[in-house]
Amino acid sequence: MANSTADEILESLKRIEIDATYSAQSYFEAAKSADFWGRFIVFFPALVSAVSGVISTIYSVKFGGVLSAVSGAVAATASFLGANSLSRSYRESARKYTSLRHAARLEISLGANRTIEEREATVRSLSATRDSIIATDEPVSNRLFRRASQRIEGGVTSYQSSP
Rank of each mutant, 00 (worst) to 15 (best):
V48R: 06
G64D: 04
S12M: 00
A121T: 09
R147I: 09
A50R: 07
A2N: 11
V74R: 00
A30Y: 08
A78Y: 00
N3W: 11
E92W: 07
D35Y: 07
T122P: 09
A83P: 08
E118A: 14
D35G: 10
A20V: 08
R130H: 12
Q160T: 11
A34M: 05
A6S: 15
S71R: 00
Q150A: 06
Y97H: 08
S33W: 15
V140C: 04
R105I: 01
A30C: 12
E8D: 10
A31G: 00
V156S: 00
F43A: 06
Q160R: 13
A128E: 13
F145Q: 11
S49Y: 00
R146L: 09
T129G: 04
R143M: 08
A103W: 05
Y59M: 09
Q150D: 03
S12N: 06
Y90I: 11
G111H: 14
N84K: 15
E11K: 12
P163I: 03
A30Q: 11
F36G: 02
S71D: 00
R114N: 15
V48Y: 10
I133R: 04
R105K: 11
T98E: 06
S68G: 13
M1I: 07
E17C: 06
D137T: 10
E138M: 06
A135M: 06
S79T: 12
V61Q: 10
M1A: 13
A128T: 07
E118H: 10
I9D: 14
N84A: 13
G65T: 04
R130A: 14
R101T: 04
I108P: 12
G82I: 01
V66Q: 01
Y59H: 11
L81S: 05
S141F: 01
L13I: 05
Y97E: 03
G53K: 01
I108G: 08
S161Y: 12
A112K: 13
Y90S: 12
S89R: 15
A128N: 12
R39L: 08
I116Y: 07
I152K: 05
A73I: 06
A121V: 09
R88H: 10
S149W: 08
A94P: 01
S71N: 03
S125C: 14
A104W: 03
I152A: 02
T129K: 08
Q25Y: 00
N3H: 12
A135T: 05
S79C: 12
Y59N: 09
V61W: 14
Y159I: 07
G82Q: 01
K62W: 09
I116N: 10
L81F: 08
L86I: 10
S26V: 03
I18C: 01
I41V: 10
L144H: 06
R147P: 04
T129P: 03
T21S: 03
A94C: 02
Y27T: 00
A104Q: 02
A73H: 03
S79E: 11
Y27Q: 02
K32Y: 08
S52W: 02
I41D: 07
F40T: 14
Y59K: 10
R15E: 06
Y90D: 12
S161L: 12
R119S: 14
W37E: 09
A75H: 01
T77R: 07
E138L: 07
L13S: 05
E120P: 15
A128G: 13
P139Y: 04
E153F: 07
M1L: 12
S149K: 11
